Deep mutational scan, measured.
Amino acid sequence: QVASGNGDRDPLPPGWEIKIDPQTGWPFFVDHNSRTTTWNDPRVPSEGP
Results as ranks from 00 to 15, higher is better:
Pro27Cys: 12
Val30Ile: 10
Pro13Trp: 02
Pro42Leu: 01
Asp31His: 04
Thr37Cys: 08
Asp21Gln: 04
Ser4Trp: 04
Asn40Phe: 13
Pro27Arg: 15
Pro14Ser: 14
Pro14Gly: 01
Ser4Pro: 08
Gly7Ser: 15
Gln23Trp: 06
Thr36Asn: 00
Arg35Leu: 04
Arg9Cys: 07
Thr36Gly: 03
Thr24Gly: 12
Phe29Met: 02
Pro42Asn: 05
Trp39Leu: 04
Val44Met: 13
Val30Trp: 05
Val44His: 05
Thr36Val: 05
Arg35Ala: 07
Trp26Gly: 14
Glu47Gly: 08
Thr37Ala: 03
Gly7Thr: 15
Gln1Lys: 15
Gly48Asn: 14
Pro22Cys: 00
Trp16Gly: 03
Arg43Thr: 09
Val30Asp: 01
Ile18Ser: 13
Val2Thr: 05
Val30Asn: 12
Asp8Val: 09
Val44Asp: 10
Pro45His: 03
Asn33Tyr: 07
Gly5Pro: 14
Arg43Glu: 03
Thr24Val: 11
Trp39Arg: 08
Pro45Asp: 08
Pro13Phe: 02
Val30Arg: 03
Pro42Gln: 00
Ile20Phe: 08
Pro11Trp: 04
Phe29Pro: 03
Ile20Gln: 11
Asp41Thr: 13
Gln23Asp: 13
Phe28Leu: 13
Ser34His: 05
Phe29Leu: 05
Arg9Asn: 10
Gly25Asp: 13
Trp16Asp: 03
Gln1Asp: 11
Asn6Gly: 06
Arg35Pro: 07
Asp41Phe: 08
Pro22Gly: 13
Gly15His: 10
Leu12Ile: 08
Val2Leu: 13
Asn33Glu: 09
Pro11Met: 15
Ser46Phe: 09
Thr24Ala: 12
Asp10Glu: 11
Phe28Thr: 03
Glu17Ala: 03
Gly25Asn: 15
Ile20Met: 12
Gln23Val: 06
Gly7Phe: 09
Glu47Asp: 11
Ser4Met: 11
Thr36Ile: 08
Pro22Ala: 02
Trp16Pro: 00
Asp10Phe: 10
Trp16Asn: 13
Gly15Trp: 00
Ser34Tyr: 05
Arg43Met: 08
Gln23Phe: 09
Ile20Val: 13
Pro13Ala: 07
Pro22Glu: 08
